[in-house]
Every structure is written in C-alpha cells, then in structure tokens.
C-alpha cells in the first residue's frame, strides 16, 4: 500500500447517524444475550475523508448461541446486496460500508469477520478502485443495561494488512517488522454520533427524564454480564490452548526432523570426504535434503493471533467491568461507613 493512502486513512473519521446509533441499541437489546450482525450502509466523502453511516439492517437468521458471531453465507450476502439495491432504488446514494456486530466487547475478533472484511476490501479495491477501509461497528448491549454506552467503530489495522499482504505473512520476523501483535489486529477509527438538524430538534423535545418509571430499584447487570464474559473467556482459552497444543506438537516434530536432516547432511558430507580420499578425481554431489525429507506443516500463526486477541479482549472486559463495579462499591462503602 503506498504511503499516501495510509495518510488518507489515518485522518479518517466516521459519522454515525443518530437513527443508526439508536437502531443499533434496539437491535442489540432484542438479541441480547445473544449476538446479532448485519450490514451497514452509507457513503464516503473522499475530499473530507468522512464516512457517514446512514442505514443499518440486521441479517435474517442470527446466531444466538453458537460460538461464531458472524456469517457471510451466500444467503446473507444476497440479502445485503438486495437491501442495497432497495436503498438505491429509493434514490439513497449508499454503499456497503461493512457490518455491525452486537456482542460482548471483543467477540468480533474472529477469523470469519476478518476474512469478510478482507474480502470486501479487496473487492472494493479491484472493482471500484476504492481504498476506503471496511468498517466493523461493535456495540455491547450488556453495558447499556447499566447505562453505559459501548460503541466502537473498527477497521483492520495497517499492521495486519501489511502482514497479510506480504509474501512471508505470519512469521515471527514479519510480525515484528510490521509491529503486529494480537492486540492490534483491529484498530479504532475516530467516530462520532451526529444528529441531523431535525433529529436535534426532536431529541431536545423528548422528555427523557420522565421515562424511568416509578421504581427506584437498583439493579445492576454486572453479575449477569460477568458470568457471560467468564464463560466466553473459558471457551476462548480452550480454543487458544488447543491452538498452542498444535504448535507444541509441531515444534517437537520439527526438532526431530531437523536433527534427522542435520545427521543426514553430516553423513553425506562424510561420505563425500571418504570418497574423495579414496579417489581424489571422483565427482561428488551434495543432494538437496528437501528431496529426502518432508518437514511438518506449520500451524497458522494467524489463528494463534486471533485466538490470543479474543482471550485478551475478554480479560480486558473483566478488568474494566471490575473497576466500574469497584468504583461503585467503594462509593457505597464510604457513604454507608461500613
């Protein structure tokens, strides 16, 4: 990727229409504690490098329990294209910008999500010479029950893209060169929620303080969301360990093979020396070891990276939720003089 485009992308901001932000809250709530996903549409202004998200739609057939959050099955791909053509027919200039996911924070770090983004990005580049990054909008509905807003706009990081597009891909040196770690597969894009003039007027008019109802009951979603988070974390760690197990197995068999190769190399060398000693005019060949040995298949570092990213984000969630809870309890403790 040329330098210039990186500059262009780094100054990118995303504007989320108020209705989209609100709809997302509603969709997330309807599917909670499950997850949901769907396409987001909008337009980008090349000059000001602002991407505007103007429409949102949820996929039919959501995964409410399974371990994956996202799916670009052919039926969903068709669905998102059909919806886009509907928008265009009603004279709304929009294009597919990416997808939204409502889930526990960080659950979007999945191979399916990453590959869908890569695929769409590649398509955009090839067909329309469009280098705008594909966006992933992540909303965590579990936070909203505690009156916290958790909404992020993400894109694949340049570090990840450079690694992906390079020839050597996910080998240690390449990861270090590109400064890619499990923490920065995705990076946040600066984003804001924008009210249109009319929405602004309407929102000012709505009397929100009146809508809390008649009970002052204190109920926190901390326990429920923590349980869910821990379950997901355990699952993610299992997955990660499985991956690591594969890697250890690979390392063991690799070191065995390497010893064999080296022994074989020494032996052929010795044989050659012996031959030369016996007959100095003899021609010696040093055959390639690759024809004799087959090294084990290397497990994917990419998988490891994604699995690590998932574990990391779940742990971060627990820490954050813990510190919020800690803040609350300390407050109660102080004021009750316990």
């Amino acid at each position: 990727m040329p330098e210039q485009e990186n500059d262009h992308n780094s100054s990118l901001t995303v504007q989320i229409n108020a209705s989209v932000a609100l709809k997302l809250a509603k969709i997330g709530e309807d599917h909670y504690p499950g997850t949901s996903s769907g396409p987001i549409y909008g337009f980008d202004e090349k000059e000001s490098s602002v991407i505007n998200i103007s429409h949102i739609m949820s996929f039919p057939g959501q995964h409410t329990s399974g371990d994956d959050v996202f799916n670009t099955r052919s039926s969903n791909v068709k669905f998102q294209n059909d919806f886009l053509s509907k928008l265009r027919e009603s004279k709304i200039g929009a294009k597919l910008l990416g997808w939204y996911v409502t889930c526990t924070n960080g659950k979007h770090i999945r191979q399916t999500v990453i590959e869908s983004v890569l695929h769409l990005q590649e398509n955009n580049r090839k067909e329309n010479a469009d280098n705008t990054p594909v966006l992933i909008l992540v909303y965590d509905p579990s936070k909203a029950l505690d009156s916290l807003l958790s909404l992020k706009v993400l894109k694949l990081s340049d570090a990840f893209l450079n690694t992906w597009n390079s020839e050597a891909r996910f080998v240690a040196r390449n990861l270090i060169d590109n400064r890619l770690s499990y923490k920065n597969i995705f990076e946040e894009v600066p984003a804001e929620i924008k009210n249109s003039h009319l929405t602004n007027l309407k929102v000012q008019e709505l009397d929100l303080s009146n809508t809390y109802g008649d009970d002052l009951e204190l109920n926190s979603n901390y326990l429920k969301s923590t349980v869910q988070n821990v379950e997901q974390l355990t699952e993610a760690i299992d997955n990660f360990n499985h991956n690591l197990g594969n890697f250890n197995y690979f390392q063991r068999s690799l070191s065995r093979e390497v010893t064999k190769v080296n022994q074989w190399k020494l032996r052929t060398k010795q044989e050659n020396i012996d031959k030369l000693k016996a007959d100095p005019s003899a021609t010696v060949t040093e055959p390639d070891w690759k024809t004799q040995f087959k090294l084990p298949q290397v497990p994917s570092k990419y998988e490891n990276l994604v699995a690590s990213g998932l574990v990391n984000s779940y742990s971060t969630n627990l820490e954050v939720a813990g510190s919020v809870e800690h803040g609350k309890t300390s407050g109660v403790k102080e004021s009750l003089d316990l």
Partner: peptide, 22 residues
C-alpha cells in the same frame, strides 16, 4: 438500551456541532 443511547444523543443536541465524539 435506547434510553442509554438517547442520553448521548441529547447531550449532542445541546452542542453546536450536534455530534457526540465516541
């Protein structure tokens, strides 16, 4: 959930640029 988001929209509505930075 809508209320939680609306809280931020209403915050944005009081500002000149009508937006809320995430």
């Amino acid at each position: 959930n809508e209320l939680t988001t609306l809280k931020y929209l209403s915050e944005a509505s009081k500002k000149e640029d009508r937006s809320f930075d995430l």
